[in-house]
Computed example of a mutant assay.
Amino acid sequence: MKAFVRANKGFLMFMFLFGVFRTAVADWNPIPSASMRPNLLEGDVVFVNRLAYNVKVPLTDLVIARTGEPRRGDVVTFSSPADGTRLIKRILALPGDRVEMRNERLVINGVVSDYALEEVVQEATSAGRMDALRMIEDVDGRRHRIQVLPQRVAMRDFGPVTVPQDAYLMLGDNRDDSADSRVIGFVPRHLLIGRAERILVSADYQGNWMPRTERFGQSLR
C-alpha cells in the first residue's frame, strides 16, 4: 500500500483536491426530470456555484460563513428536507414573505404576479401528450419562463403561508409537474447547495443522444 501511495501520490493529491473543489467551491448537476421545463431540459448539465451563498465544511451541511443572500428568481440546487435528495428549483418566496397561489397565480405580500402567454406546445408527459402553455411570469420584477399543463391534475392553490426565517419557498418552472415546496415544504438555508448559473453541456438522452450545441453555455435566469 505504501508503495502504491508513493508511486501515485501526484494522482491521489489531484483527486483529493478535485473532490474538495467539487464539494466546496463549484460543481455540476445533471438534469434528470422535466420539473424545470422549459428552461432546463432532461440531459442538460448545469454549472453550480457552491460559494454563491455559503461556505460549508466539505461533504456536510455545516455552514462556516455566509457569502451572499439568495434572491427571488435564483435557480438553486439543494438537499430536499423530506429525504435528502438533491433537487433543482427556483426560489420564489423569501424569509418573511406571505405567499399564496390561486389558480396557478402567485400572490406574494398581497401583490398578484403578472403572466403573459408566450406559446402553446405539445408536451410529452407520463400521462401522454398534452397541451403545455409556456408563459412569462413576472414576480416582484423578476421575469422568467414557466410552463403549465392545464389537462394535468396538479396543486394549483395553496396558502396563504408565511415563509419562516432562514427558509425559502421553491417551485419548479414546470408548475404542474414538479415535486417542490408544495410537497416537500420550505427549504432551510443550510440545505442550499449553490446557485445554478449556466448550462455547461446538453444532450438529447431521451432521443438519439445528439448534443444540443445551441444550449451550451446558456445563462440561466
Rank of each mutant, 00 (worst) to 15 (best):
M1G: 15
F4S: 05
V5A: 08
R6D: 14
R6P: 01
K9H: 06
L12G: 11
F16Y: 11
V20Y: 00
V25M: 14
W28C: 09
P30D: 15
M36T: 14
M36L: 15
M36V: 13
P38Y: 13
N39I: 08
L41F: 07
E42I: 15
G43F: 10
V45S: 03
V45R: 03
V48D: 09
R50C: 03
L51Y: 06
A52R: 00
Y53E: 07
P58W: 12
T60Y: 07
L62E: 13
A65T: 09
A65F: 10
E69M: 11
E69H: 04
P70N: 13
R71S: 12
R72Q: 08
G73T: 11
D74E: 04
D74I: 04
V76G: 02
S80P: 02
P81E: 12
P81S: 04
A82M: 11
G84V: 10
I88M: 05
I88G: 04
I91D: 02
I91G: 01
A93S: 05
L94G: 02
N103P: 00
E104G: 02
V107W: 03
V107A: 03
V107M: 01
N109H: 01
N109Q: 00
N109M: 01
Y115C: 01
E118R: 12
E119V: 15
E119K: 12
Q122L: 15
E123S: 15
T125F: 14
T125C: 08
A127R: 13
G128R: 07
D131K: 13
A132F: 05
A132V: 15
R134H: 07
R134D: 10
M135G: 01
I136T: 15
D138P: 00
D138M: 07
G141M: 13
R142Q: 15
Q147V: 15
L149F: 02
P150Y: 08
P150Q: 06
V153E: 09
V153C: 00
A154E: 04
M155G: 03
P160V: 05
V161T: 12
V161P: 00
P164Q: 10
P164R: 08
Q165G: 13
D166I: 01
Y168H: 05
L169F: 12
L169C: 04
M170V: 10
M170W: 06
G172D: 07
D176L: 04
D176K: 09
D177T: 03
A179Y: 08
A179L: 13
S181H: 10
R182Q: 12
I184S: 12
V187Y: 04
P188F: 08
L191V: 06
I193S: 05
G194L: 04
R195Y: 09
L200D: 10
L200C: 05
Q206N: 13
G207T: 11
W209P: 01
W209H: 11
T213W: 04
E214M: 04
E214V: 04
R215M: 03
F216M: 14
F216W: 13
L220W: 04
R221C: 05
